[in-house]
Computed example of a mutant assay.
Amino acid sequence: MSEKIKNRAKGAVMGAFIGDALALGPHWYYDLEKLREDYGEWVDDYTAPKKGRYHEGLNAGDISQSGYILKMLLGSIVENKGYDEKDFCRRMDNDLFSQIDGTPVSGPGNYTSQSIRDTYRNRVINNLQWGEFESHADTTEAIERTLGITAYYAGDLKKASKNVYSNTILTQSDELLASMTVAFNAVLWMLINGYPLDEKISGRLMEEVKNKTLPFHAVTGDGLAPPKKGVSEPSRLGRFASPDALLTPSFIVRAVEDPGISIEPAWKVSLVYGMPCAIYHILPSVYYLAARFKDDFELAVLHAVNSGGQNMARAMLTGALVGAQVGIDGIPGRFIEGLGEKDCLLKLTERLVG
């Protein structure tokens, strides 16, 4: 792995941790007037949660449970020199489930997401084995940890995608969600490897489908041309019936670059695509901010933080995409210095890509 790729991979991982921690205080405000009342017109740094809010009791710069799980997965990858599913599941059982009780307000970060609560219930209460149960939570929770897999496998998109899918379905079984999770990680992989987030990115991803690297089914030809009459349908390469999740990023980039389309200020992207937690609300807004502020980590992540609703997922994933574009050297030092676990996270990230 070249030094430039390492720098971008570190930027992606640290960008995710920073986005997660920046949104800790103003997390899940659907009343934007209340958000401004509690934190002012513009949140520009780490803040502690207010009394009675999500994550109450944590300090400014702390990471949430999403960050904790990402850190746990990175530790597993580093110690095993690659993704080891059995080890990850063991860590979930021993290191996370021992700290939560299946209710929303519990465990690291003082809040547990729906898919993790479902998984806890199936493993601890119902005593089911990993792979024997389902969770239909439609959030970005799996992306928030699997981005670490993609950073590690920056040299092998096929292996990255295979392991991202395998890890995703441990806690979220919906196939459409899994396809969007793999697609996001494929975009992240492209950015880590130096490809720009431009109108051509979906075309590049479709080439990887054609090359049997990404597990998507497609019948169109080059440039999404219609299939020729009499030509048999290509064999299904994976579980995903449609490559549409790979096409979204290019359309979002076109919207960013179209002078006839304006979202001002940019944080209002959450009002356009939706403030809730579902993956189909979060990813378009993430792609938008990552394309609009591709060279400015601070503006990208702060617009995500100030957008309300599920701004933690929005900021975490935006931080990963823009961190991959600017590299860790392009992230303002104050954001790294302000992290409560700065030294631990930097060391872990260095070992991941080293």
Score class of each variant (00 low, 15 high):
202 S>D: 04
203 G>K: 14
170 L>S: 00
198 D>M: 11
156 D>F: 15
200 K>C: 09
181 T>Y: 02
156 D>R: 07
153 Y>W: 14
166 S>Y: 10
191 L>P: 01
145 R>V: 14
154 A>D: 00
184 F>A: 01
145 R>I: 13
163 N>F: 12
195 Y>P: 02
191 L>G: 04
174 D>P: 00
151 A>H: 03
196 P>Y: 00
162 K>V: 05
188 L>P: 02
144 E>G: 00
205 L>K: 05
150 T>E: 12
204 R>Q: 14
177 L>S: 05
185 N>R: 10
205 L>F: 03
165 Y>Q: 11
180 M>E: 09
187 V>L: 12
206 M>N: 11
166 S>Q: 13
155 G>T: 11
174 D>L: 06
166 S>H: 12
141 E>L: 07
205 L>G: 00
151 A>K: 03
192 I>N: 01
173 S>Y: 07
193 N>A: 06
198 D>F: 11
165 Y>S: 04
179 S>Q: 01
193 N>R: 08
144 E>T: 11
161 S>R: 07
164 V>Q: 04
189 W>Q: 02
174 D>K: 03
168 T>L: 08
153 Y>C: 07
185 N>I: 10
162 K>C: 08
149 I>Y: 09
168 T>D: 04
150 T>G: 12
159 K>T: 14
180 M>T: 00
183 A>Q: 01
208 E>G: 00
168 T>Y: 05
172 Q>A: 06
175 E>Y: 08
191 L>C: 06
199 E>C: 10
161 S>C: 08
203 G>L: 10
155 G>I: 15
179 S>A: 06
177 L>T: 14
186 A>T: 01
193 N>P: 08
208 E>D: 13
203 G>F: 13
163 N>I: 04
152 Y>D: 05
183 A>G: 06
166 S>C: 08
151 A>L: 10
172 Q>G: 02
190 M>L: 11
197 L>Y: 06
158 K>A: 14
148 G>T: 13
208 E>H: 10
198 D>K: 08
176 L>Q: 07
195 Y>G: 03
155 G>M: 10
164 V>S: 04
142 A>G: 13
187 V>W: 04
161 S>N: 05
174 D>N: 15
207 E>S: 10
160 A>C: 07
196 P>I: 00
175 E>M: 12
199 E>D: 15
196 P>M: 06
146 T>S: 15
153 Y>A: 03
178 A>N: 09
186 A>E: 01
200 K>T: 14
185 N>F: 06
151 A>E: 00
189 W>D: 01
207 E>K: 14
186 A>N: 02
180 M>R: 12
151 A>P: 01
208 E>N: 09
160 A>H: 03
141 E>C: 14
190 M>C: 05
165 Y>C: 05
144 E>K: 12
175 E>N: 08
204 R>H: 15
184 F>L: 07
204 R>G: 15
